[in-house]
């Protein structure tokens, strides 16, 4: 699978799931493009964060990844 097709598949997957879930483990992305090696998926996901499609969420111990702008955003964190 080429890089652009991989990116499209990831965005489609996250958009489909967006109603129930906004943050995903890195491992969830392996299943979106199962033919790629984990290391390549990791590199692709990180590239998508760099180009602004995705964003990280970190608890400090674990990192999750979601579509940029979905779920609670930094500006709203101090709201109830």
């Amino acid at each position: 699978m080429d890089k652009e097709a991989g990116k499209t598949a990831i965005v489609e997957y996250l958009t489909k799931k967006a109603k129930s879930k906004s943050k995903f483990y890195l491992k969830d992305f392996y299943e979106v493009i199962p033919e790629e090696k984990p290391r390549d998926v990791k590199n692709l996901v990180n590239e998508m964060v760099r180009d602004g499609t995705l964003e990280y969420w970190s608890s400090g111990s674990t990192t999750m990844i979601g579509l940029k702008g979905t779920g609670k955003q930094a500006a709203a964190e101090d709201e109830a």
Binding site: Y56, W57, T63, A74, D78
Partner: peptide, 30 residues
Amino acid sequence: HGGIVGVFGYGGGVIGRYCDQPQQFPGVAH
């Protein structure tokens, strides 16, 4: 505990933390 805050290009090094009583303790809202 936790959040999307960070610095550009990095997925680590910053851990978001917010207080749930920001009106009472504005100094530690973030």
